[in-house]
């Protein structure tokens, strides 16, 4: 399987440029940091985001409905969340899609921050700081930033509501 552009630095080094890493798993934040540090300029990073976006797991067509729409984005974005309490601690599962691949790449970054995290971890995460670390803050248009912050706000609201619910159940 050849997924050039999605290879991590380690895989790239191993194969001398012919990346063979399958990108079926979502990237972790650390892997994203590593990848961004490895890529020299913004255009390469954008390319990487587009590849990441093209590999993002798809939502089904019945999930791409108006109630799941995130407004404020230039492109169409749908966001689906659920609280997964099958494990030791309930965690927020986040899935999202856009029709734009560059936006899907940014969604992959959001998923690395928020997916599979407990509501408390979601509230503690500093998305602005992470976007700064990735230098995305400098390169995104104000409209893209609005769209992203719309998604972040929605996730934080869900996490806050989940904490209230969980507290009530505990009492």
């Amino acid at each position: 399987m050849n997924t050039v552009g999605l290879c991590t630095r380690a895989a790239f080094d191993q194969t001398q440029g012919a990346c063979t890493l399958a990108a079926t798993e979502l990237m972790t934040l650390d892997e994203l940091y590593e990848e961004f540090d490895f890529l020299p300029d913004w255009e390469d990073r954008c390319d990487f985001l587009i590849d990441l976006g093209m590999e993002l797991p798809k939502l089904s067509s019945d999930e791409k409905i108006e109630p799941n729409r995130v407004h404020g984005c230039q492109s169409m974005v749908w966001l689906v969340t659920e609280l997964d309490d099958s494990g030791d601690e309930p965690v927020l599962r986040v899935r999202a899609n856009s029709d734009a691949m560059i936006v899907n790449g940014l969604i992959a970054v959001l998923l690395a921050i928020y997916d599979g995290k407990t509501p408390r971890e979601v509230l503690d995460a500093d998305a602005a700081e992470i976007f700064k670390r990735l230098e995305l803050d400098r390169h995104l248009s104000s409209q893209r930033k609005n769209g992203l912050s719309g998604m972040v706000t929605r996730l934080r609201q869900l996490a806050a509501a989940a904490i209230v619910d969980l507290d009530q159940q505990a009492n």
């Binding site: 587009i50 230039q74 492109s75 169409m76 029709d99 734009a100 691949m101 560059i102």
Partner: peptide, 12 residues
């Protein structure tokens, strides 16, 4: 192709 991707890639 989404319009946003097209515009972004054309800019390149």
């Amino acid at each position: 192709a989404a319009a946003e991707d097209i515009a972004h890639l054309l800019d390149r």
